[in-house]
Each structure stands twice: as C-alpha cells, then as structure tokens.
Computed example of a mutant assay.
Amino acid sequence: MLNLIELEQFVAFSKYGTLSKVSKLMNISQPTLTRNMKHVEDSFGVSLFARRKNKLSLNETGIKAVEYAKQLLKDEKNAILMVQEFDRKLHSITISSCAPAPLWLLSPKLSTAYPDYTISSSICDTDKVISDVKSDVIDVGILPYKYIDDSFYVTPFFTEHLSVCIPYEHELYKKDTLTFDELNGYNCLLRDQLGFWTNLCKRKMPASKFLIQTDESEFLELVRSSTLFCFTTNFGTYPDGFLENRKIIPVTDKAANVTYYLVWKKEKAYRF
C-alpha cells in the first residue's frame, strides 16, 4: 500500500536527485530513506530505479510514477481542505446583505441563537445576494424588498428610514422634510460600503456630486468640518453628540424607507 509520507520523499528524490540531499532536507536518516524508496517501489510492484554502484536514479517507469505520486499528494491536500471546509460550513452561518444596518442587528442575534457557530458576513448587490443563496455560497441573504421564490423562506426583518444631516448654515436646514428631487443638485458626503443605498442616492440625485470616503476617521472629520450634508438613518452609527451642529431631516420618498427581508433556503431551519 502506498504511504503518503514515503511518496513525498519519493517526489523529493526526483527533484533533488540524491538520497543524501533529501536526507538532509527532510531530516531523515539515509538508511531509512533507502528502505522507504524500496517500499515505494514494492508498493507499485514494478522497478522504479536504475541502480548502479553508489548511484541511484529513476528509470523511465519511475519518472512516470513521480507524476502519479504528485497527483496523489495534491489530491490528499485537496481532500483535507474539502473535509475541513465541509466541517466549517456545518458550524458556520454566512450572511450577505444589500446594506450594512441589517448586519448590525442580525449578526449578534445569530451569535446568541448559535453560540457554537462562526458568523461571517459581507455586503454585496441584490442580484448577487439572490444568486449566492440559490447556489449555497451563503446561508442567509438580506434584500431591500420582498423576494418570492417557492424554495425560500422570506420574512420581513425591519424598516430603515433615510435622513439627511444638514449643517445649520446650509440653505436647506429650514426644511422639516426633504425629497430626492429637492436634494438633487447639491453636493454631499457619502461613506463607502453602504450597499444599495449608494446606488440609490446616485440614481435619485443625478445632478449631485458625491464625495465618497473610504476611511471612517476622515469621513467623520469631514462631517465635523464640512458644509456639505451627509446621510444617516434610524440605525445610523455616528458617535453620540457628533451631529449636534446639524439638523436631521427625513427623506420622504418611498424609496428612502426600506423594509429588509431575510431569505434562506427552506431546508435550512434557522431560528431568528
């Protein structure tokens, strides 16, 4: 029977050419290595080496055996990774969301319900959320609308309301409500990683320019010092008192008030 450790030594011999080099590199005595090479040969049941005085080399069959040995070793590593990945999936729940706020609520809820599981999450566009749930790339998806599919459980999660944070010196600060039409044409600050909200604002405000910030500390500093407005929601995460010099005005468009839905395959009996 083939031994994987001996096959590694066999492949190493094909690479380095001498038993002494393999002995030093793999920290194994040369007599033991010689016995192992003989055992590999016996396991294949054919001659693999050309033996001359003080010289051992692979014959033509041995060279072919090395190719198969490499594939066996590769298959062994892949098998280990696949089994580990399978076990990981049995003890993990993966979530993809169209926006960040649902993850802030769902991740801790799942951690409480499944304390022995690893909870991982990501933000991506709605089409990818759906395709990843269907293909089992993820376990739970979060969408900004109700998705109908007989193979899915679909349940409402919560509603998020968009508002703008208007500096008091801004000409819109006297408003009590605003629409995207009224905001269109004004430039604003925008944090990245907002999921579908980013595309929504760009689509609804085509005449506006958006100063998108990837670094949170730089974004907060601009919010503190800039005269540009920014966005928040009823689940906004600005530090306490940070927006005291700005007026929070709700956006009344239907598109700015979003109910999120959880979707997952019916064979996965999660508790939310």
Score class of each variant (00 low, 15 high):
Arg191Tyr: 12
Pro206Asp: 05
Leu189Gln: 03
Asn187Lys: 10
Leu183Asn: 07
His161Arg: 14
Ile166Asp: 02
Glu182Ser: 04
Ser163Gly: 00
Leu143Val: 14
Thr155Leu: 13
Tyr147Ser: 09
Glu160Leu: 04
Ser208Leu: 09
Met205Ile: 04
Met205Cys: 15
Leu211Glu: 14
Phe210Gly: 03
Thr179Asn: 01
Asp181Lys: 15
Thr198Ala: 12
Leu183Tyr: 07
Tyr186His: 15
Pro206Asn: 02
Ile142Phe: 03
Ile148Phe: 13
Leu190Pro: 02
Lys202Phe: 05
Glu169Ala: 05
Leu178Ile: 15
Ile166Trp: 02
His161Gly: 00
Ile212Trp: 06
Phe180Glu: 06
Val164His: 06
Leu143Glu: 06
Phe157Glu: 07
Glu182Lys: 09
Ile212Asp: 04
Asp192Pro: 00
Val164Ile: 14
Leu162Ser: 07
Thr155Ala: 13
Met205Ala: 06
Glu160Gln: 11
Gln193Ala: 14
Thr155Arg: 09
Leu162Tyr: 05
Thr179Leu: 03
Tyr186Glu: 08
Glu160Ala: 05
Ser208Tyr: 08
His170Val: 01
Gln193Lys: 10
Asp176Arg: 09
Pro206Ser: 02
Ile142Asn: 02
Cys165Thr: 13
Leu143Lys: 11
Lys174Arg: 12
Lys209Glu: 15
Val154Tyr: 00
Asp176Val: 05
Cys188Ser: 14
Phe152Val: 13
Glu169His: 06
Glu171Tyr: 08
Ile142Arg: 08
Lys209Gln: 14
Ile148Ala: 11
Cys201Phe: 05
Val164Asp: 02
Lys175Asp: 03
Tyr147Trp: 15
His161Gln: 13
Val154Asp: 07
Cys201Met: 15
Ile212Cys: 11
Pro167Ser: 06
Gly185Thr: 08
Phe158Leu: 15
Phe152Cys: 09
Asn199Gln: 12
Leu183His: 08
Lys175His: 14
Cys165Ile: 01
Ile148Ser: 07
Arg191Met: 14
Cys165Leu: 03
Ser151Cys: 06
Gln193Met: 12
Val154Ile: 12
Leu211His: 10
Leu211Tyr: 15
His161Glu: 09
Asp192Met: 01
Lys202Arg: 12
Phe158Glu: 10
Glu169Met: 02
Ser151Lys: 11
Ser208Ile: 05
Tyr153Arg: 11
Asn184Pro: 11
Asp149Phe: 12
Phe152Pro: 12
Cys165Asp: 08
Leu143Tyr: 11
Gly195Lys: 08
Cys188Ile: 00
Trp197Ala: 03
Thr179Met: 03
Lys174His: 13
Phe157Lys: 11
Leu189Met: 09
Phe157Thr: 07
Lys174Gln: 13
Thr198Leu: 06
Phe180Asp: 03
Phe158Val: 07
Leu200Gly: 07
Arg191Trp: 08
His161Lys: 14
Ser163Thr: 07
Leu162Trp: 03
Glu160Lys: 02
Pro156Thr: 10
Thr179Glu: 05
Ile166Lys: 03
Phe196Thr: 14
